[in-house]
Design a protein around this nucleic acid. Structure first.
Lengths: 233, 233
DNA sequence: GACGTTATTATGTATATACATATTATGTCA
DNA sequence: TGACATAATATGTATATACATAATAACGTC
């Protein structure tokens, strides 16, 4: 008991999660303070604190100084999913990854893009379009605009061996992003590229990445309706 | 300096995040050890450890015992979104929430449902369908199946004042869930209920919740194509 | 009783220390 | 040289202690 039985915060966290799941600690109820729990679990307060903080960050507990800790009334639990680079995503699913460059040129960006990135209308940007395939089948159509002021060195890149996705990941810093998911019907061009029927449903992910005050890239990723985005919690 | 300048792990984390974002610490590079960093930042190793651990959990760092800490080569950053209860989601967006119960009865569940939940084929389950509205406009069509063995007390509920969503959140435990997002075209019934054209795109979220070994509920939530799911990271 | 001040209290964070654990590097022996 | 035991090392975790901070409760004044 003195040697082996050092309680880890993992065990304590799990036990507390169990109590919440099984309603030993009901939603909205105030749970014992850290001091009390540390005595109950036979460990230091810091250990209980770590367990409680992690649960609070997961959204199942709500903590307030002086007021104490209570079980979240509406467990607005957070779903977390990883946003891997597309090649990894495909290879993880067991597919053979390939990509096809469709176009790569500097153009005046349409208002819908510049507005989204907070840039001046009609700005010249790099426009790259490519198709990512899994086992030879269209998996994602990527339509990307890159702010050349932020990443000037991308200008000469041919993207023959590396996708714009990976190039940016390894060559450009970024610290913030906004991601939007939605559904739409495929336009004529999209349908043609993805090899689906026009007006078929598509799953769209749009992402703007930037460092503070400086937009880097806007990308619109379009998946056929067979695509599933899955997460566990 | 002695009193005020106690470095918080927040500040250290931010500084390290900056170094990663600005490529002072390049992708794949090994960064200094905790001991070294604690000297540099003038704080305890535990403080550096906490900052490093949080960054590692966010996916921008990869840590391995003995091997050290390095900047993630492919920042598989995780997007985290909160899954609030639908009423909160609508009210947060500034809409007036209402819901309409469409049906509520015990039926034999179709194979697609029982299979998804790991239950025996043809099992009797509670089938509840309802429509959530924002400012009077269809926002989400909810089609739910509840395992009566897991939540027997739901049998008598009329859902006149509370939605099945909220009822379950407050009356049923759950510890795990699987969530799937995808796009599809609206079927005739869905289109009718949501008030959109048939074959229009819809955004679908499906969720199975369960406690270990015991499925609780399967819900299919269908949004019109105007729906946007947004997250920042 | 309304209102502002002060005490109290639970959580939040920092620190020094100690030991645990995983993994790599090294050294020894056949 | 190769296999295997051993040492070295960076991170992982626990603990006691101390102080910071936010929010409530208690109190006293007007």
């Amino acid at each position: 008991m003195t040697a082996t039985a050092r309680k880890s915060f993992h065990a304590i966290k799990a036990e507390m999660a169990r109590r919440i799941a099984e309603r030993v600690w009901a939603p909205g109820a105030l749970i014992p303070g850290e001091e009390v729990l540390s005595v109950e679990f036979g460990c230091a307060r810091a250990t209980v604190n770590r367990a409680l903080q992690e649960l609070a960050r997961g959204g199942v507990l709500v903590r307030k100084r002086k007021a104490g800790t209570r079980v979240a009334l509406h467990p607005m639990r957070e779903a977390r999913f990883v946003i891997p680079i597309i090649r990894q995503e495909i290879e993880t699913k067991g597919g053979k990854y390939q990509f096809k460059l469709l176009s790569n040129q500097v153009e005046k960006a349409p208002a819908s893009i510049t507005q989204r990135m907070g840039l001046t209308k009609g700005k010249e940007m790099l426009h790259v379009r490519c198709l990512h395939l899994s086992d030879g089948k269209a998996y994602q159509y990527e339509d990307r605009w890159v702010n050349l002021d932020a990443v000037p060195s991308i200008r000469g890149e041919t993207f023959e061996t590396i996708s714009p996705n990976e190039w940016l990941v390894t060559h450009s810093p970024f610290s913030q992003a906004e991601i939007v998911f939605h559904a739409d019907v495929a336009g004529a061009e999209e349908a043609d590229i993805l090899g689906v029927a026009e007006k078929d449903a598509v799953f769209i992910v749009e992402r703007v990445t930037f460092v503070p005050q400086k937009p880097i890239t806007f990308v619109r990723m379009i998946h056929p309706s067979s695509h599933r985005m899955v997460t566990q919690l």
